[in-house]
């Protein structure tokens, strides 16, 4: 067991190292001179040289990478070119709103996906199933930059129930969470339906029914518990998509989180902040995936033994 966990952690570390390398290389992938891209063509040569030295771009590539790694190990993410604040301070301010939004979206996804998925599985090939799966297909097909404005149009402008944008109390969280959570709800409900359908044909379900248990108890106590494994993996994998989706959702609703900071920094060409945001979001994703793998292995011995 500990061997399996160590193996997962080791490969996660390799992936994180690769992610750090790609994020470091981002600045060098820009066509032309990155300093000119950041400052614009009108900047004086003195300013350019200063920025080049500040970012260490005048040194050989390998030395730059070693320095970048060294600074990262000290949790030094550099200084924002725009606000001159340490990048880590900027990130700390922006993390709570994004975590809040992601958790709320997960809650929305659960609340929508479980009833839809269970209903569709119980009423397979009937109109309830078709309707639930049509909703799910629609949910997958409406991107959140369209869902957001549509929800604002309906619930903020026409009905006046929720604020259009900003972060001011729980009520302002509803529309962004709905926007971000719907796509996940759509994918999740399909997964719940599929894995419930597989479980519902098992012998122990027939036994439970034969004992005279009601549908609610059969589903709640026997079927769902066993159908949850693939669902848990999917949730782990989808949290990354949720974090990426949060970037766009935060822009739609002017939600002051990491996503908004990423896009604002890209627009201002504030490289150290862009690098830090991408690094933080991707590393979080890798860690969550690794944890999901480990939990999956703990829950299902077949997984860890097969590797």
């Amino acid at each position: 067991m500990s061997g399996y966990i160590l193996c997962r952690i080791f490969s996660a570390l390799i992936v994180i190292f690769g992610v750090v390398f790609i994020v470091f290389m981002l600045i060098h992938m820009v066509p032309g001179d990155p300093v000119e891209v950041m400052l614009g063509e009108s900047a004086s040569s003195v300013d350019r040289e200063m920025l080049r030295q500040t970012l260490g771009l005048d040194k050989p590539l390998t030395e730059q990478f070693y320095q970048y790694l060294y600074k990262l190990s000290q949790f030094d993410l550099g200084t924002s070119l725009h606000s001159k604040q340490p990048v880590s301070e900027l990130l700390v301010e922006r993390i709570p709103p994004t975590v809040e939004l992601t958790l709320a979206a997960l809650l929305v996804a659960f609340l929508m996906a479980f009833p839809l998925g269970i209903l569709a599985a119980l009423k397979k090939d009937r109109w309830q199933d078709t309707t639930a799966m049509t909703f799910s297909l629609l949910g997958i097909s409406i991107p959140n930059f369209l869902m957001g404005p549509l929800l604002i149009l309906l619930f903020s402008i026409m009905l006046g129930w929720f604020p259009v944008s900003g972060r001011d109390g729980l009520i302002s969280l509803v529309l962004p969470a709905l926007t971000l959570g719907t796509a996940l709800a759509a994918i999740l409900s399909r997964m719940i339906r599929a894995s419930l359908l597989e479980v519902l044909n098992e012998d122990y379900i027939r036994t439970a029914r034969a004992k005279g248990l009601g549908t609610a108890r059969v589903i709640g106590l026997h079927a769902l518990k066993n159908a949850m494994l693939p669902v848990v993996t999917l949730i782990g994998l989808q949290i990354g998509a949720l974090l990426a989706g949060a970037v766009i959702t935060e822009m739609v609703f002017s939600w002051p989180g990491l996503g908004q900071l990423t896009i604002e920094s890209i627009q201002k060409r504030d490289y150290p902040v862009v690098q830090a945001c991408i690094l933080l979001i991707s590393t979080t994703y890798v860690i969550i995936n690794t944890l999901t793998d480990i939990v999956y292995g703990v829950l299902d011995p077949r997984i860890r033994l097969s590797r």
Binding site: V19, I22, I27, P31, V37, V247, I266, V274, I278, S282
Partner: peptide, 16 residues
């Protein structure tokens, strides 16, 4: 390991 279109957002943002 890069979630969704995050890498594309960064790349196209930097490339213009």
């Amino acid at each position: 390991a890069f979630p969704g279109i995050l890498l594309a957002i960064a790349l196209s943002g930097l490339m213009g």
